[in-house]
Amino acid sequence: MKKKNYSYIGIAFIILVFGIIFIPRIVNRIKDNKIVDNNKSRSVGIANPSDEEKKALALSFIEINGKPKKVPNFSFTNQDGETITQDDYLGKVYVVEFFFTTCPTICPRMNRNLIEIQNAFKNEDGFGIASFSIMPEVDTPEVLKAYAQDYGVTNPNWNLMTGEEKAIFDLANIGFNIFVGKVADDEMGFEHSGDFALIDKNGFIRSRKDAFGNPKIFYKGVISEQEKMDEDGNEQEISMLKEDIKKLLNE
């Protein structure tokens, strides 16, 4: 019986020490409103992000020599025979691609993804797409018009454009840093990137940051949301692009 009494005394002593040390601290935290409902905290954080959180979520500007890179001036003819310039896109968020209508490989996949994006923003007047043909001698306005109809282009702000070849190549390689080139041993004679660029309402190229804090610059345009990833293990970025379009539309 004595051993049991010693055990009870020991337990009582531990409880007493705990009360002396910790209960005053708990009372003080309650007085200072430092005890927070974790679930409430999480929901408030999502619904009302702080300025710092908003800054972290904001899309980056692509900077060249310390200055945000803006879409250069251009002037081309669209599928309706109209002259389209960079000014026609001011006030709109838009996606840029370089393609050609007879491309048998990545272009059909890119444009199916763009159709999906178009349909995701079908009620958004402030969204557009700019498609520049890198084979202007073939892709006349009439050819582009038929191509647009075949793919289901309905957005009035989606212009498929043709023009002078050098001007289009310079726009791609210098203006957007999206590779376009002629390749002698290629079946079609051309090689080009399957990436998309995202432009904000003021004509600046924007993107989210990578894991190292650097702008991603481009979005993979070839892999669909349904595929999720390609044979090399690269993940699709169409979902990411849709999210970032929404962010820019809300800016």
Rank of each mutant, 00 (worst) to 15 (best):
C103F: 06
N123K: 10
P108S: 10
K201P: 02
T83K: 07
E97V: 08
F99Q: 01
N33F: 01
G152F: 07
T140W: 03
G126W: 00
T77C: 02
K209E: 11
A197N: 03
P72Y: 07
L144F: 08
F179E: 14
I35P: 01
G91T: 14
E82Y: 07
P136V: 07
K54S: 07
P141L: 02
D244G: 08
C103E: 01
F196E: 05
T154N: 11
T154G: 04
R29S: 14
I26E: 09
K92V: 06
N214H: 05
P141M: 07
D230K: 04
M188T: 15
N65P: 00
Q118F: 11
P104A: 10
A58T: 10
I223T: 13
P141C: 12
Y6P: 10
F190G: 01
E251V: 15
V27C: 11
Y6A: 14
K228R: 12
I168W: 00
E142K: 07
K4Q: 15
E97D: 12
K182V: 09
F196A: 07
E191K: 06
K122V: 13
F204N: 06
P49V: 04
M240Q: 14
G203A: 09
V95T: 04
M229E: 14
V153E: 03
I46P: 00
I30D: 09
V183M: 05
K31W: 06
Y151D: 15
I64C: 04
N250W: 04
M229G: 11
M240G: 13
N250K: 11
I205T: 04
M1E: 15
D125T: 13
P72M: 06
G213R: 05
P141E: 06
T101Y: 00
P72S: 10
N119D: 15
V17T: 13
N73Y: 12
Y8V: 15
P24D: 08
V143I: 12
R208V: 08
I21M: 13
P68C: 07
C107V: 08
M1I: 10
T77W: 03
P104W: 03
G233K: 06
L59T: 09
T140A: 12
Q86N: 12
T77M: 08
I15P: 08
Q226G: 09
P136N: 02
M161V: 05
V143R: 00
E187A: 14
S131V: 01
K216D: 06
Y8Q: 15
I245Y: 00
T83H: 08
I64Y: 05
D150Q: 15
K4H: 13
G163H: 01
P108T: 09
F13Y: 10
G91K: 02
N5V: 13
D232M: 02
F179S: 13
S7K: 14
S224R: 02
L114S: 00
I15A: 15
G128I: 02
E165Q: 09
K69D: 02
Y8K: 14
D51A: 14
